[in-house]
Design a protein around this nucleic acid. Structure first.
Length: 872
RNA sequence: GGGCGCGUAGCUCAGUGGGAGAGCACUCGCCUUACAAGCGAGGGGUCGCAGGUUCGAAACCUGCCGCGCCCA
């Protein structure tokens, strides 16, 4: 294009033939940060939009699930920023108590040390060192992804401010009587040596054994945990069980121990399970504990914190899993094993951090009475103050908050927020607030335990904004706009933030919307796991295909609440899409497309221009609607097809002859093409920020697309006339191409043709365009039609293929078309012949079917005629 | 055992009452002056099974089969 008649920008950059993300991403990210685009201000008049990041574990690294979640949050944030909101995406990490302590203890073990060798203080210092190292990695990964987070506001759950928030709310809950200390059965990990909450326990169906033990002639109990019999303090039967009713109140001698234990009647015994008699071990089973409470039974702890038997006798010192067969063997020797089922599959709880089998253990711990908090958390969703997306997921949420157990919050760890309670020499218990001095003097000491990590994570939406101080951030950015997180931590985290947010912030919930997404899976729908070897590192994809391609792949799979399968092939496809945009813009720039001055309107526009502007308007409307509904996959789909099909395959192709022709119409096209790409790149920027920034700045000559206004449509802008006209044009072009392809005509081969009926179809003006797109020459004097195509209504195309027509291919093609038309006609006729259909179906539907029949019959007539005209 | 969800093209998924769709994969033809990371054309599905509701069902109801997740 040597003659650029109206080159507004002589400095228009030239682009390479392929997009190279590596040349762009780091440079752009640094520019963005330096320019302060990600920084949110409390001084602005703009309405706030806030997202707090689900804090990744400081000790981990970002996996594909994070990349996915971050893509969604970044897309939301970038769009709102463009829409003129004061957009804050607040980054940070959590301290991950057990996980982090485990990592550092392993490091110490490699040096032959334990944490006890260092002592608490030096150990915690050591963890902080590790935090600096490990946390840095995550921050680097976020930069690679392109996260538009406000780095100035980065937070960590162990920061001073956040720790103050923890202490403040602990004190408040304590004073309100919602925190208490009690001896209960809790989940205990004998390897991590700490209590766990219910949801940190994962149940799996494991092979075990079910042995039936005869305690006496009358008493036989079945158990999967024979070793716990050493701690039995009763046998229970259902009070209405006729078989055993008479035994209630009597005693039986517990084998191997010689202790006598009572037989009690308890409603919770299932008479149909096993013999209908159960052993009761209050110190090692939550159900048994409750039975014990009801019947005032003693609780005998028979294991130490590592799961080693402490009960006196021959089993003392055995691990719980060694003790089990030993005890069964001893009982068998006495002839007391009356039945054994092995393997017996049953649910076994495992520590979610280290997979060790959890031991229910009686111990003194701190709890939160969740009932009033959970009630409020449920109500906030029930009454619509907080919306869960997709709405179906609210059922899961209610199922949890409406049946919440008290939450065990103490952990026997060193890494975490230490419980702010001091014990005095005379049994005093004092909870100390953040500005209070702990009691000093002989005999006073602080509780040794720390709080569950989720306790501090639960404060995240407001502790990160400065609470308990009444900061400007808190005033501006709370409540947060939307929480983006996986349905898998609805219970762990979301419910807790809801409880704490409502409690601490005077009944104001922490977010307006909870947008839940699924889990990233591989291309076969399998969970990514190390054992499967199907784990993909997002950085690997970013290196090979670019951050944009990685993000587009993830966003494109993001149907609300659904799992997201990804594969390298799809990421390649996303890279190709980025490259397509690159080349479309490259073409535009090479042809003088620009964004200067008003977009031409009305009579200045060709039908093709009106058509693409109409398509653009509906794309903008659709994308906005879909974004509001968190339909990321559909946003991507709509934009992908608009960009590739409408813009690249049709608009650019239809515009080529116009641009080449020069003159007034070419200038209009350049401006329209510039405008369409400008808007398209804005629409795509939230999902693929790097390539859009690079292209948009090249196209417009402006600094950044980050703060460019987000596209909107005012009113109805669909141009139905232009859309119908171009649709006809597309049909004609496609039909001719199909003929050429079926006939084996080379794309480059020019064919003489006569086009008839274009006027009737309303596309007469496009005759030269059609000829150029499908390489048809004007019919000359020696024109001899060797084939005639009937396409799209009255349009017919007579082609002179110089006698080289492939009759068999043409017959096959027409026969196929005829069959399709016949089927279509038959279906429509069947409906119209049905009086019930005519009587009951709504009029527009009937009219549509009538039209369909008319079209099919007309097609059929033309096709049949063409078939008959074929030489035999 | 209780609850929730899913079953649509080879793969992964959209489609919630009115002509079965997308991406990738596949077949054929093309280096066409933006792009071979591309262009053009095409093939491919008794919508898990069986009943029912309806003028009309992939969609709504019932049952069954298979798979997954959560909880106990």
């Amino acid at each position: 294009m040597t003659e650029r008649l109206d080159a507004h920008r002589t400095d228009a950059p030239t682009l390479s033939a392929q997009y190279q993300p590596g040349d762009v991403e780091q440079r752009r990210y640094e520019q963005w940060v330096a320019a302060g685009y990600f920084r949110a201000s409390t001084d602005s008049e703009k309405p706030p939009f806030t997202i707090v990041i689900p804090p990744p574990n400081v000790t981990g690294s970002l996996h594909m699930g994070h990349a996915f979640e971050h893509t969604l949050m970044d897309a939301l944030t970038r769009r709102k920023r463009m829409q003129g909101y004061e957009a804050l995406w607040l980054p940070g990490m959590d301290h991950a108590g057990i996980a982090t302590q485990n990592v550092v203890e392993r490091q110490l073990a490699a040096e032959g040390l334990s944490r006890h060798d260092l002592g608490r203080e030096r150990f915690v210092e050591r963890v902080w060192q590790w935090k600096a190292e490990s946390g840095g990695r995550i921050l680097g990964q976020m930069r690679r992804l392109g996260d538009s987070v406000d780095w100035d506001r980065e937070r960590f759950t162990m920061d001073e401010g956040l720790s103050r928030a923890v202490q403040t709310i602990f004190k408040k809950l304590f004073d309100d009587g919602l925190i208490y200390r009690a001896e209960r059965i809790i989940n205990w990990c004998p390897r991590c040596l700490t209590a766990l909450s219910d949801i940190e326990v994962e149940h799996t169906d494991d092979d075990g054994e079910l042995v039936s033990i005869r305690y006496s002639d009358d008493v036989v109990v079945a158990t999967t945990r024979a070793e716990t019999m050493l701690g039995d303090t009763a046998v229970a039967v259902h009070p209405d069980d006729e078989r055993y009713k008479h035994l209630i109140g009597t005693e039986v001698e517990l084998p191997l121990t010689g202790r006598r234990i009572p037989i009690v009647g308890d409603e919770h015994v299932d008479p149909s399970f096993g013999t209908g008699m159960v052993k009761v071990t209050p110190a090692h089973d939550p159900n048994d504990f409750e039975i014990g409470q009801r019947h005032d039974l003693p609780s005998l702890t028979i294991m130490d914190e590592r799961g080693v038997i402490t009960a006196h006798g021959p089993f003392q010192g055995l691990d719980r899993f060694e003790a089990r067969p030993a005890i069964v063997a001893a009982l068998r020797e006495q002839g007391r094993i009356v039945a054994e089922k092995r393997p017996y599959v049953h649910a076994v709880g495992h520590c979610s951090r280290c997979r060790t089998t959890v031991e229910p253990r009686l111990s003194l711990q701190w709890f939160i009475n969740t009932s009033p908090l959970a009630k409020a958390a449920g109500d906030a969703v029930r009454d619509g103050r907080v919306r869960i997306e997709p709405a179906d997921m609210a059922k899961r949420y209610f199922a949890w908050v409406d049946n919440m157990h008290d939450w065990c919050i103490s952990r026997q760890l060193w890494w975490g927020h230490r419980i702010p309670v001091w014990y005095g020499p005379d049994g005093e218990v004092v909870c100390v607030g953040p500005d209070e001095q702990p009691p000093t003097g002989d005999g006073w000491h602080q509780d040794e335990d720390v709080l569950d990590t989720w306790f501090s994570s639960g404060l995240w939406p407001f502790s990160t904004l400065g609470w308990p101080e009444q900061t400007a951030d808190l005033a501006k950015f709370y409540p947060t706009s939307v929480l983006v997180t996986g349905y898998d931590i609805l219970f762990f985290w979301v419910a807790r933030m809801m409880m704490f947010g409502l409690y601490a912030m005077d009944g104001r919930p922490p977010f307006d919307v909870i947008a839940l997404h699924g889990m990233v899976r591989d291309q076969f729908g399998k969970k990514m796991s190390k054992t499967f070897g199907n784990v993909v590192d997002p950085l690997d994809w970013i290196d090979r295909f670019g951050a944009d391609a990685t993000r587009f792949t993830l966003a494109r799979g993001a149907n609300p609440g659904q799992d997201v399968p990804v594969s390298e092939e799809w990421c390649q496809g996303s890279r190709n899409f980025c490259n397509k945009l690159w080349n479309a813009t490259r073409f535009a720039l090479m042809n003088g497309a620009h964004c200067t001055g008003p977009v031409p309107a009305g009579a200045q526009l060709s039908t093709v221009d009106r058509w693409i502007l109409s398509r653009l308007a509906s794309t903008v409307a659709e994308v906005n609607e879909l974004f509001e509904a968190y339909e990321f996959a559909k946003v991507c789909d709509v934009l992908y097809h608009f960009a590739w099909d409408d813009v690249c395959d049709w608009y650019v192709e239809l515009s080529k002859p116009v641009l080449a022709g020069g003159g007034e119409q070419a200038e209009v096209s350049r401006r329209v093409l510039g405008h369409v790409l400008d808007q398209l790149l804005r629409l795509l920027h939230p999902v693929i920020p790097f390539v859009t920034e690079e292209l948009w700045t090249a196209l417009t000559g402006q600094d950044t697309v980050l703060t460019a206004a987000w596209p909107t449509v005012a009113g109805e802008q669909a141009d139905t006339a232009a859309e119908a006209e171009i649709a006809t044009l597309q049909t004609v072009v496609t039909e001719i191409r199909r003929f050429r392809s079926d006939q084996g005509l080379r794309p480059a081969q020019r064919v003489a043709a006569r086009l008839d009926g274009l006027t009737g179809a309303g596309i007469a003006a496009h005759k030269p365009l059609i000829r150029s797109l499908v390489r048809l020459d004007e019919a000359g004097d020696d024109f001899q039609a060797s084939a005639t195509l009937a396409v799209a209504g009255a349009v017919s195309v007579a082609l002179d293929t110089r006698g080289s027509i492939d009759v068999a291919a043409e017959r096959a093609r027409l026969t196929k078309d005829r069959a399709a038309a016949e089927k279509e006609a038959a279906q429509a006729r069947a409906k119209l012949d049905n009086p019930a259909f005519l009587g009951k179906a709504p009029e527009p539907v009937v009219a549509k079917i009538r039209e369909r029949l008319a079209t099919a019959e007309a097609d059929l007539a033309r096709i049949t005629a063409a078939l008959e005209a074929l030489p035999s």
